[in-house]
């Protein structure tokens, strides 16, 4: 089985996608802290942050254009784009990162041997490597989310679209013998967003809100020309 044929399988009911409306995003960064709280993402301290060793899975990029006073600024929440043709996947020698049937780039932490090839191949810079052993000083460890693991030194990690919430949502649906309802699963970033710029859902369900929004004329993907088939869809800001 080649990776390509695996990617092209379309026998699953779910394909998770996210729509981010840049016209609503005000760059406040609430999503970055929500992600940190939900996913046990550590802080690294001033020295290591200076060396670009921060671990945040989600960051707000802001772009300036022009000179005072004729300035334009654009914010862009940057997270793993969950590419269908992901550049990070084929380079992993141990299949620690692979494409799951629901369209997610998944990391298997236990398999990762820390070659960092995936991070090198990711054009978005969203893969974060654990260069150090992370410590949570007592009693901060009591805040850690029990749904997911704390990653070890030497392991690559990245946004999972809040895998644990997807899992939980699907479990509930299964227990009740139904499909997951649209809007039932909300990742931490989307849930906290004060402007409601982020929408998450199953793009294979044509009635879902993401499928609806993805039809927008403002739709675009990052680095579309590379054919990555990303599943974070941005809606252009401005008039």
């Amino acid at each position: 089985m080649t990776l390509k044929s695996f990617n092209d399988k379309h026998d699953n009911d779910y394909h998770w996608a996210m729509v981010i409306d840049l016209d609503c995003c005000d760059g406040c960064g609430a999503c970055t802290i929500a992600c940190q709280a939900e996913n046990n993402v550590p802080t690294v301290g001033e020295e290591r942050a200076y060396d670009k060793r921060t671990m945040s899975w989600l960051r707000i990029e802001r772009y300036f254009e022009g000179e005072w006073p004729n300035l334009r600024v654009v914010f862009l929440p940057m997270l793993c784009q969950q590419c269908d043709k992901a550049p990070c996947e084929p380079v992993c020698p141990v299949f620690a990162t692979y494409h799951n049937p629901e369209g997610l780039n998944v990391m298997v932490y236990n398999r990762c041997i820390g070659t960092r090839f995936c991070g090198n191949n990711c054009p978005f810079g969203v893969r974060k490597f654990n260069w150090f052993k992370n410590r949570w000083e007592e009693p901060l460890e009591q805040q850690l989310n029990p749904d997911i693991s704390v990653r070890e030194k030497g392991v690559m990690e990245k946004c999972t679209f809040c895998m644990q919430r997807i899992r939980r949502g699907k479990d509930h649906a299964k227990d009740e013998g139904r499909e997951v309802r649209d809007g039932e699963i909300i990742p931490a970033c989307a849930q906290t967003c004060p402007t409601k710029a982020i929408t998450f859902g199953n793009i294979r369900d044509s009635k879902s809100k993401v499928a609806e929004l993805a039809k927008s004329k403002r739709r675009h993907h990052l680095l579309e020309e590379h054919g990555l088939e990303t599943h974070v869809i941005y809606l252009k800001g401005g008039e």
Partner: peptide, 19 residues
């Protein structure tokens, strides 16, 4: 807030468990 929380609000749990 209609369901929104800002970065500072999210950090309330870290303040609660601050060493």
């Amino acid at each position: 807030n209609r369901g929104g929380v800002c970065a500072r609000g999210q950090a309330a749990v870290q303040q609660y468990y601050h060493p």
